[in-house]
Nucleic acid binder design. Structure first.
Length: 269
DNA sequence: CTCCCTTTGAAGTAC
DNA sequence: GTACTTCAAAGGGAG
């Protein structure tokens, strides 16, 4: 089944050969995501400084936690993405959902009571909390522990590729009628490599602004907060796959690019 | 219901 | 400093 869906995308993929097809980017240059890194020590975070300045209002993270009991609403971002999906010829003034104006005002910014829950903040299970009525039945210790466990998770900001995926996914699905994300992502990965440096640069810039705003909204947040909390992927399996080739990703991309048939056969029937 | 798959990049941990 | 690991999104598939 998986094989079939993957093969159904074959034609699509033929237009976006893997990077191993040496010469997709005739001009060998340093990885864009590295070249795109802003120099250290460059002060760019005026807003960040503003948030970090001593003020009586609670920290953004605290605000976000107070929003947990609300029905979680992911704002409709289709507008923004439709804005950018057609032509990325110019950078939008707003950056994805992190920098969407309404979100900037509403999510986590102190002093905005009508705050919209930030899409990066989700309850761990994605479910609503217990009603206060139910919680009264529990002991303080239990409820405290539960509260701790149900703390909203502040998600990582999306990187350039993730932003690209988010924007292009629907397009690819429409083109190839695939729905399985694993297959879609393979296509998107190849399309990503097929992008020009200029096109990629737009997404790196978007991602940079995402990180910047994320920092502003959640000054104390660290990727460490979510580290190791998501899945307990079988380390043996992962090591098996890495030791199989034992190559760095760059080399694998260049020489050991897994074929579609390989990836399809990797999933158990 | 929960995890896996699959991708790239950022950021974490381990040595 | 380098190598390795985890998590961001997504949704069908599998157990």
């Amino acid at each position: 089944m998986y094989k079939e869906t993957v093969y159904s995308a074959f034609n699509l993929l033929m237009h976006y050969p893997p990077p191993s097809g040496a010469g997709q980017h005739p001009q060998p240059q340093p990885p864009l995501h590295k070249a795109n890194q802003p120099p250290h020590g460059v002060p760019q975070l005026s807003l960040y400084e503003h948030f970090n300045s001593p003020h009586p209002t609670p920290a953004p993270a605290d605000i976000s936690q107070k929003q947990v009991h609300r029905p979680l609403q992911t704002p409709d971002l289709s507008g923004f993405y439709s804005l950018t999906s057609g032509s990325m010829g110019q950078l939008p003034h707003t950056v994805s959902w992190f920098t969407h104006p309404s979100l900037m005002l509403g999510s986590g910014v102190p002093g905005h009571p009508a705050a919209i829950p930030h899409p990066a903040i989700v309850p761990p299970s994605g479910k609503q909390e217990l009603q206060p009525f139910d919680r009264n039945l529990k002991t303080q210790a239990e409820s405290k522990a539960e509260k701790e466990a149900k703390k909203p998770t502040i998600k990582k900001p999306l990187n350039a590729f993730m932003l690209y995926m988010k924007e292009m996914r629907a397009k690819v699905i429409a083109e190839c009628t695939l729905k399985e994300s694993a297959a879609i992502n393979q296509i998107l990965g190849r399309r990503w490599h097929a992008l020009s440096r200029e096109e990629q640069a737009k997404y790196y810039e978007l991602a940079r602004k995402e990180r910047q705003l994320h920092m502003q909204l959640y000054p104390g947040w660290s990727a460490r907060d979510n580290y190791g909390k998501k899945k307990r992927r079988s380390r043996e399996k992962h090591q098996e796959s890495t030791t199989e080739t034992n190559w760095p990703r760059e080399l694998k991309d260049g020489h050991g690019q897994e074929s579609l048939s390989m990836s399809s056969s990797s999933s158990p029937a």
